[in-house]
Simulated assay, not measured.
Amino acid sequence: MEHILRPIYQERASQQNTLGVILIEKRHDTSSVTDTFDAVLLIIVKDGEEAIFTKHYIYEEQKAAMHVVTEDQLNEWLLLGSNRKIVDWLFNGKVLFDRNEYIEKLKMELRDFPFYGRKIKMGMEFAKLIRRYLDGKAFFEAKQYLDAYNHIVHSLHHLARLAVIENGFHPEITVWQQVKQIEPEIFKLYSELVTSDEPIKKRLELLFIASEFMIHSRTSSCATHILDTMKEKEQWTIQELQEHPHLKHYSVDLGVLIEYLIDKKIIEIYKTDTKGLYVYHRHYKVSL
């Protein structure tokens, strides 16, 4: 379909604002990588009025999508992992235009996966894992086993993504295939949860025991990013932590992560006076 879309992407490539153009074609009928489209044009621009601008096209019996994405939006997707397909598109798509080797340099950076970038992603993924795990445990203790099961499946997915990141790779759409090679223990846990003939309560009981160990063993490395950030000063309010540029992407999971680290005696509570009697401000600092 490249020759059909050529006039569209050539017009974009001629603009100074365009950094790169990638064509992603559907590999087979059951592939979800192109969101059911026969082809996707990913056009990366330096900046734009909209972070994402999309158009759909049709040619005879084929359909195509064009996504014009700003560099900031692309970097946010890569940092947060909020667009699971983007890594696949960058590595497996056909580069049609590459200004000053922008795409090639980006792919090299992704392959290298600098440790600082890994620390941020590990911290955010760990926070999501903690939230899902604790919610699942609360539902289990309330005997709401199906809701507990749902949260634990999600927590295992975050654990799988975390394992991939720890090993210096970016989680892909087929994350379980990656984990099967990288950390078969996590893959086995997931398989036993979803395929075992044991009663759901028994499956969850066993999984909570195994997950507790896997989470505990990762706490030190996965908390490095938030702890390094908090060491910038003596104590923090929750608002200051939420607004910090390095922590704002933790979003609603930040509070849960802090409470977990308090429970593990990694973060301490520091009380300061308020105008109310016996009511104190709750500040946070890293335990010495």
Rank of each mutant, 00 (worst) to 15 (best):
E25H: 04
E49G: 06
T34I: 06
A51T: 05
H67N: 14
A65Q: 13
V40F: 07
F37V: 02
H56M: 13
T34K: 06
Q62S: 15
E50V: 03
E25I: 05
G48N: 06
T30N: 12
Y59M: 06
A64N: 03
D47W: 00
D29W: 11
A51K: 11
I43T: 09
V68E: 04
T36H: 08
K63Y: 13
L42A: 05
I44D: 01
Y59E: 14
V69W: 00
F53H: 12
T34M: 06
I22G: 07
I52M: 09
E50D: 10
I52K: 08
E60G: 06
G48H: 00
G48Q: 01
S31D: 15
I44H: 00
H28C: 11
D38N: 11
E60P: 03
T54C: 03
S31H: 02
S31R: 02
D35A: 11
A64D: 02
E50Y: 05
H28L: 08
T70E: 07
Y57H: 05
V68D: 01
F37W: 07
I24K: 10
I43D: 00
V33C: 05
T70D: 05
L41R: 02
Y59S: 13
I52D: 09
D35H: 09
T30M: 11
D35K: 09
E25N: 08
S32F: 11
E25K: 11
T36M: 07
L23D: 08
K63W: 12
E61F: 13
I43F: 00
